[in-house]
Design a protein around this nucleic acid. Structure first.
Lengths: 136, 136
DNA sequence: TTAAATGCAAAAGGTTTGCTACTGC
DNA sequence: GCAGTAGCAAACCTTTTGCATTTAA
């Protein structure tokens, strides 16, 4: 019952861009990047491909705040940090907390099969900018 | 520089509803409930009040998935579980992980001041429904 | 009295979708 | 050849906002 996916030029470029950056960009940002390689690209195509790739387990969608989603080229679970000031999302190289899902499962009748841990604060770049602006 | 907030009838009812339920409803759900007490209530007012209450630290906004936000009458950090099937959000009575923010802070130059942990899976109600439907 | 909040409706912003043409496989 | 995809634009859905009016303190 699985749908067969085609590797179109558009999808390949979107995936390449996402895998080549360390940040976790929005669909709009990816669209602007990809358009440099495919001028006629449409934003709808970017969204459709990001959704296909996510459903296929090749990338991860991160939705923080209530605004736009960010996308992560690595699908395996890992933790993130989001800056309260600029909204940027960064990886956090903290080892996965083992057994946390098992521990949480014992508490009630829900069947737990995943978890997500995010940190918030001010990113290094915004901290630097603040220090710089203080010295006016 | 703090803005003075008034306790209007609308705001009080919205807060009362949110504090009286165990689930973490959406703005739309709260609107439908509150309208039974204030028929002329507008959805915009619900959103405005939820934002005011959140900014004031009286409630918490939870944004999972990319669709609607859920609201939690308890503002202090605690962990949640979201059902992949029905989208419902529940509290998870797991103690806060101590020092996790300190631990994460050492990794890079970001300044961390908060964290959020969510679990995913199938909720008890959906599990029950599945079992029931299997017995056709 | 008066600044804050309401109701209404319009607008905004991100994402999805219908449709026709095109293209991987 | 044909199902899956692209491009385009319109639709969708949640949330925000402008404005005239009302209301809490």
């Amino acid at each position: 019952m699985e749908r067969i996916q085609r590797m179109t030029r558009q999808k390949k470029i979107i995936l390449d861009i996402l895998r080549s950056v360390k940040t976790h960009p929005t669909a709009e940002w990816i669209y602007q990047e990809a358009r440099q390689q495919i001028p006629g690209l449409s934003l709808g195509t970017v969204y459709r491909n990001l959704n296909l790739l996510r459903d296929n387990g090749e990338i991860m969608e991160l939705n923080y705040g209530s605004s736009q989603s960010h996308f992560d080229g690595t699908a395996a679970n890992h933790y993130h940090f989001q800056c309260r000031e600029c909204g940027g999302v960064y990886d956090l190289d903290l080892p996965l907390i083992k057994n946390i899902e098992t521990k949480a499962s014992g508490i009630n009748g829900h069947q737990i099969d995943g978890h997500r841990l995010e940190f918030y604060g001010i990113c290094e770049a915004c901290l630097d900018r603040r220090r710089f602006e203080e010295n006016d």
